[in-house]
Design a protein around this nucleic acid. Structure first.
Lengths: 126, 126
DNA sequence: AATGAGATCAAGAATTATTCTAAAAAAATC
DNA sequence: GATTTTTTTAGAATAATTCTTGATCTCATT
């Protein structure tokens, strides 16, 4: 844990959302103006390796980083672009009631939902 | 439907797998050697717009294209890199038994599973 | 406190997948 | 058949990320 990694980690924990590397860079520059974007990428990679942080991807958009370590899915609002964590049901030995063909061994699962978040839904039809 | 779009679509239907744009480009060049990569990208985009083909993404890897129109998830083998379609359970009004917080409206769902496919599992422990 | 080895950082170049641009070619419409 | 619109092509441009290189830091050992 170096100083820059700690600051990056703290920035992520302070605002438990889903920033991109670039957003993390912006936030961290406030406390450490000399940090470089490359260091942000390197440090985030290390934090992911250590299991302190998770990567989140939707399609080919910029990777986002998420300090929620519990296994969970993500909901993306099409209107406002917000990202929300979604709990997965605990009844999930190898999926969510999925019937996998025999022989497939699942060790990880990524679930992304697309739609409208409560705030934007309320705005549209009040 | 132009000639190039048809050829691209046919290439996708001929081998119902999950090629990247570049792989599609390679395949299509065999029947139409003058086609350009930009056309492959443009045409795939059009085919996706028309709903004839689907995009599939895993993390930030190259986008893959999939002619299976049924809603389904994807299994990625870590060993051999193969991609398999996975049926989703029909009991899925807004997810797979997910308990979404109220107000979230889901219109699309992406599910990616990571693990070992039957072939690679068999190779490892015979 | 000095030394030295190894890890880490910073800045910018390089890479990769994809998109954009502009001109030529093809197709559709009149 | 002329004209307008769409599509194709080739190459330049872009964006996110990774790589490279030299400088800097860390820290155990002297």
């Amino acid at each position: 844990m170096t100083r820059q990694r700690r600051i990056i980690y703290d920035a992520l924990m302070a605002k438990r959302d889903h920033p991109t590397a670039d957003e993390v860079f912006s936030r961290v520059k406030k406390t450490m103006p000399t940090i470089s974007l490359a260091t942000v990428y390197n440090s985030l990679e290390k934090l992911v390796e250590c299991g302190l942080v998770r990567q989140v991807n939707r399609d080919r958009e910029s990777t986002r980083f998420c300090p929620n370590l519990k296994e969970h899915g993500h909901f993306y609002c099409r209107e406002c672009g917000s990202v929300h964590d979604i709990d997965l049901p605990s009844t999930r030995p190898s999926g969510l009631g999925l019937s996998l063909p025999p022989g497939f061994k699942v060790d990880h699962l990524d679930l992304n939902l697309l739609g409208t978040c409560p705030e934007c839904g309320a705005k549209q039809q009040p």
